[in-house]
Design a protein around this nucleic acid. Sequence first.
DNA 1: GCACTCACGAAAGATTATTGCGCATCTGCC
DNA 2: GGCAGATGCGCAATAATCTTTCGTGAGTGC
Lengths: 166, 166
Amino acid sequence: MVAIRLDEIDRKILAELQADGRMTNVELAKRVGISAPPCLRRVRTLEESGLIRGYHAEVNSRELGFEVQVFAMVGLESQAESELSAFEERCREWPLVRECHMLNGEVDFILKCVAPDLSSFQQFLTGELLTTPNVASVKTSLVIRGAKDEPGVPFDVLEERMSRTA
Amino acid sequence: MVAIRLDEIDRKILAELQADGRMTNVELAKRVGISAPPCLRRVRTLEESGLIRGYHAEVNSRELGFEVQVFAMVGLESQAESELSAFEERCREWPLVRECHMLNGEVDFILKCVAPDLSSFQQFLTGELLTTPNVASVKTSLVIRGAKDEPGVPFDVLEERMSRTA
DNA sequence: GCACTCACGAAAGATTATTGCGCATCTGCC
DNA sequence: GGCAGATGCGCAATAATCTTTCGTGAGTGC
């Protein structure tokens, strides 16, 4: 992973691919204002530099049978680094846990989970999460409804900052 | 949005495109075991049915200059439906707010935010979020480090359920 | 047994991806 | 000023992919 100097075209490419990751290179080139070959080279460079981590189809979880989404706040008994890593590793192994972030404040971790239904989640909660060694407390909150769910970052904020510092 | 009966090939397609959304149709067809034309037809059908909502490049927020990620728990004064919708609409307009979910329990909403640095976030917090009408309380938690961040749903869980009910 | 529906896969033409190469611009250095 | 070297663009050509068309076979209901 090498630091890369991005120009405006690169940022446009990132913004476009974040919005539509399956766009053809020809279309992308047209939108950012260069021809196809240099555009493809830039995309490859962005991928190799790690600025683009991958491409994902966004699926409709609910329609696919994952009716339930839950945030879980987890507190641990011990916050020793080895214990923190051990818990993180557990989270990586649980398919129902989609995100795990270590937080500051009273709570140690926040987990975003999905499940086919409430009983599946309860089963995971009582059978897995709560029985994990070193887990002191878990507070769960069901998602009643989703109001916004945008992946990635707001590139317009980035552009603003660039123009201000330029 | 019409309900669609999915067979195993469709689920494989969804899983593959969730993992790599930029895969060529030829490669996808090879992986799911059919030829390219019917594979493309299935993908189009999945897109039109809304099961595939879109495709996104996953970008490296930190390298792009968004060093800070914050979860904010928001409580409102009034939980009347009109007030709830009004707050959700505000969230949709704030670029730093990437996700907004309504929760059950003590807290009304959880927000996932990104920002270039702490001071940008403080500025947003004090200048926007806290001054929004009807916002009663905001508790923020900084993400110290990310341990897992997988988009979408675990298709292996889905396959398990299918085979159990079949 | 016969229409009907459905989904597959081969074939072909259109579009796109990818490579090679020449050219312009910029930079550092005489 | 003027000369390498590096960088990045775009044209052109080829390889690969996309997309449509069409014929075929399996399954279904009557």
